[in-house]
Simulated scan of single mutants.
Amino acid sequence: MKRALPSVLLWLVVTVACAAPVAHTAPAAPAQPPDYRLAPREIAAGVWLLEGANADFAPANGCNIINTAFIDTGDGVVVINTGPSREYGAQQRRAVAAVTGAPVRLVLNLNQHPDYFFGNQAYADVGGSALPGTIDGARREGAAYADNLYRLCGDWMRGTEPAPPVHALAPGPRTIGRRTLELIRLEGHTDADLVVLDRAAGIVFAGGLVFRQRIPTTPHAHIGRWLDSLARLQALMEQSGARVLVPSHGPALGGTEAIAQTRAYLQWLDTRLREAASQGRDLAEVMAMPVPEPFARWGALPAEYLRNVTHLYPAHEEAALGQ
């Protein structure tokens, strides 16, 4: 089965995805802040998961499409990603306190996209930590991210301002309490993708490099480097004996099948765009082309596919014209 993309839907999605930033003013405050209904699930001893919707940003999910997590180290908590808004971060921190009663020692933002760090406002006393490239990207693009999320999710974003990470991380082991986390720098999804290996728990937090049953996001993507990073992730899983790979988007729990899914989609997308460019197809034609199985059943279709084409096709057109 292939799912074609109607022309009216193409126009609507691209208009929202590519619109220029606007001022983010929200309507009068509601009686109660929106409730993300966060429900921590313990996936290994001392490791809790908060799973987001397998969907695109939308008011129905409060722009909560990210998987976040926290680890009780015995000497405080490590938080992985802080969600799309100030309110998400506040509710996440209350969930941490309710489960562990321990102070937060370290907040990790795995890349520069807004749902990885907008909840940092709730951790101002700790400050987010990230790779230097992530800090630079979050500072550079944070205001535009906020404008777009306010447009998409309104009241869920109330009081949210960009809160880029402030502490630069170096790759390598980081020991807190009885946990040693291995911080690994990869790239391709963005210019700086942080991966966290909790060897004791047998879990890899792969960030935005891996998507499970969801169309990948590509605003900062370099497909070749991304595929190289997926190969390194596969080797890391095998070498470490990790049993669980948690992506930041899509169903959270599973193993290396999510690496294979992401690789297959990126290879298919790159081939489609390269062939379409060589055939002289214009952007609208490529957007309207059907998406094959199994990708047609994945979350965030068609919006994310349309953004993929918008982000990546111009470079393929330029390359074809230069031949």
Rank of each mutant, 00 (worst) to 15 (best):
V16E: 00
V16K: 00
A17C: 02
C18D: 03
A19F: 00
A20M: 01
P21T: 02
P21D: 06
P21A: 04
V22E: 09
V22K: 08
V22S: 07
A23R: 05
A23Y: 07
A23L: 14
T25V: 08
A26G: 05
P27L: 04
A28P: 10
A29I: 00
A29P: 00
P30Q: 08
A31K: 15
A31D: 06
A31Q: 15
A31M: 14
Q32E: 07
Q32G: 03
Q32S: 05
P33S: 04
P33Y: 09
P34E: 10
P34Y: 11
P34C: 15
D35L: 08
Y36K: 14
R37Y: 02
L38H: 07
L38M: 10
L38A: 09
L38V: 09
A39K: 15
P40N: 11
R41W: 13
E42V: 09
E42R: 05
I43A: 08
I43N: 01
W48V: 14
L49N: 09
L49F: 11
L50H: 05
E51V: 11
G52D: 08
G52N: 09
A53G: 10
F57T: 08
F57Q: 08
A58N: 15
P59F: 10
A60C: 01
G62N: 13
G62A: 14
G62H: 12
N64C: 09
I65Q: 13
N67A: 07
T68K: 06
A69H: 06
A69T: 12
I71N: 02
I71C: 08
D72A: 12
D72F: 02
T73V: 09
G74Y: 11
D75V: 12
D75T: 10
G76V: 06
V77G: 06
V77D: 03
V77F: 05
V78Y: 03
V79Q: 01
V79R: 01
V79F: 02
V79W: 02
T82M: 04
G83N: 04
G83W: 00
G83I: 03
P84R: 09
P84D: 14
P84N: 11
S85L: 11
S85Q: 01
S85P: 04
R86N: 01
R86I: 04
R86V: 03
E87Y: 05
E87W: 14
E87S: 14
Y88V: 02
Y88K: 13
Y88S: 03
G89F: 02
A90Q: 06
A90R: 15
A90T: 15
